[in-house]
Structure formats: C-alpha cells, structure tokens
C-alpha cells in the first residue's frame, strides 16, 4: 500500500503553487494599502495647504477672514503646553521607572502598579479630558489655561514615558552597576552616575515620542474647553491658549461654511506634520547615535 500517491501529488502541485503566489501578492497588496492611503493623505494635505503657507500665515493672528488668518497663537499655545508636558512627564516618568525597576520589591504592590500603568495606557484620551476638566479646570479652578491642558496631556502620555524608561533601565547590563557597588558607591550614586547616563538615549527617545503624541492630541483639549474666539498670544503657562490641533479642528468643522477654511486647516496640518517629523527625526538620531550596545 502506498501512503503517498505520486500522481495525485503531482496533479495538485501546480494548483497549490499558484494559490500560494496569488495569496502572496494579495498579502503584499494589503501591506501596501496602508502606504497608498498614507501617500494620498499627505498629498491631499500638501496640495490643499502648501500654497497658503507664508510668513504672514505663520506669524499672524487668528482671523475670521481666511486671507488674513495666522496661526502664531496656536504655535505658541502648543509650545507652552510642551513646556509643561516635557518636564512633568520626564521627572515623574523616570522617577516611576527607577522605582519600579530598581527599588520596588517584586511583589503584589509592584505588580499592581505595573498592571495599573498598562491599563492607563488603554484609557481613551477623551476620558483624560474629562478628568482634566473636573480636576484641573473646575476643582483646582485653573480655568482653561496652559497649565491645565499641560497637566491633562501629561497624565495621558505618562504611561508611554514610564514604559520606555523602564525598558531603557532594564537594558543596562548589571555588571556596570555591580562594578559601581564594588567601588563603594551607594545605590543612589550608582543610579545617578552609572545607570541613568547609560539609559538616557532610550529614555529620551521614549520621551520625545510621548511628546509628539501629546502635540497631536485634540480630544482632551476639546473637553477642557479651548475657546474658538480670538485670544491674545499666550505668554506663559497661566494664560488661556489654543493649540495647533484645536485650530485644525475648528477650521475643518467650519469648512462647510467657508470653503477656504479647509485650506487653512490643511496648511495648519502641514505645519503640525513638519513639527512631528522634526521631533521623530530627533528621536531616531538620538537612538542611532547615542545608543550603546553592551
């Protein structure tokens, strides 16, 4: 008795190979689909917006007149929000990561905090907006100022920084810190002089990615209540503000009323995407240039 019928195998071979080829190309098409959409998206945004970008648009004030509108206020708003988010998330994020990786005893509490951080990363951004509205804007009575927006966005991106910092700290080999202990250094001296400098590129990369996530976030800001009105340029963290994504939001919504607003929104998107591109390039450069391989 033959276990394998050679004739049958031969007959079916061609079909199986063809099927494999067809599926392979459909898998490739599926992979390219996303990239095609990405290309169309970027092309559309640039085609609509690029001709509207000039110095007056970048440096000008908001205006209901599409031809005179500028986004300096939104740029400054985004800048001030970043000035809050960057230090807050760096300090708290790195602190939490050091505690979890180097101080916390492996046990229930540590596992609980870890699970909690993972869950926080999955909470929709708009829920953070409600938290910010209730705590920072109303209960602490900040109003809708830069500080309230910055704190809200900080809470939102904090899990990203923590997880990145944890991974960076974990990747520092233990022989470095053991050598430091062997020289008589204390734990904190070892962390400060050995572990943190070695982990810094990884931490910075994570922090920059978190920052670029915060720059593009719109939903929490809509809940906090960013005015669509003309407000003076924000000069510090206690001022009312608008931000680039909020400006895109308002102009897109109103583009059914005034057609040129769609162009203004597209032009603002170009500015936002360039900003994100710069940040991400910086992250990649830092990662490639300063990453030690141990």
């Amino acid at each position: 008795m033959k276990y394998v019928d050679a004739e049958q195998v031969k007959k079916r071979m061609n079909g199986r190979i063809i099927k494999n080829t067809i599926f392979k190309s459909s898998f490739l098409i599926a992979t390219l689909f996303g990239l095609v959409v990405l290309t169309i998206l970027i092309y559309r945004v640039f085609a609509d917006g690029i001709s509207w970008i000039n110095w007056d648009f970048i440096s000008g004030k908001l205006s209901t007149d599409a031809n005179r509108a500028g986004i300096m206020g939104a740029i400054l708003g985004t800048f001030w929000v970043m000035a809050v988010v960057a230090p807050v998330t760096m300090i708290i994020g790195i602190g939490t990561a050091i505690y979890l990786e180097l101080y916390a005893k492996k046990g229930r509490l540590q596992a609980f905090i870890q699970t909690n951080i993972a869950n926080l990363a999955g909470v929709p951004s708009i829920v953070y907006g409600i938290l910010g509205l209730t705590i920072f804007v109303r209960a602490m009575d900040f109003g809708n100022i830069v500080l309230a927006g910055g704190f809200t966005l900080s809470l939102l991106v904090l899990p990203i920084v923590i997880v990145a910092a944890q991974e960076a700290i974990r990747s520092v080999p233990s022989h470095l810190s053991e050598a430091s202990y062997g020289m008589g250094a204390t734990k904190w001296q070892t962390i400060k002089n050995i572990i943190l400098p070695a982990a810094l590129p990884g931490i910075l990369t994570g922090a920059i990615l978190a920052l670029s996530r915060a720059i593009g976030e719109t939903a929490p800001l809509t809940v906090i209540g960013i005015p669509a009105l003309l407000i003076p340029f924000p000069g510090g963290i206690w001022d009312k503000f608008t931000a680039l994504p909020m400006q895109i939001y308002y102009w897109t919504l109103d583009s059914s009323l005034v057609e040129e607003y769609a162009n203004l929104a597209a032009a603002t998107i170009v500015v936002l995407l360039l900003l994100l591109f710069l940040l991400n390039s910086a992250a990649i450069i830092i990662r490639n240039k300063f990453q030690h391989r141990f």
Binding site: L38, L41, L276
Partner: peptide
Amino acid sequence: ILKPLLEVLAGIPTIVYGFFAFTF
C-alpha cells in the same frame, strides 16, 4: 523598509485623519 513606513500611519494625529475623512 515596510514596517517603519507602516508605523508612520500610527503616528499621524487623529485630527488629521478626521480632516481626511471629512474633506476627501
């Protein structure tokens, strides 16, 4: 080459997708 390019999609702010959905 493909994987980082695909991940660019994930890095685009949702407001930009909103604009894209509405106007295109």
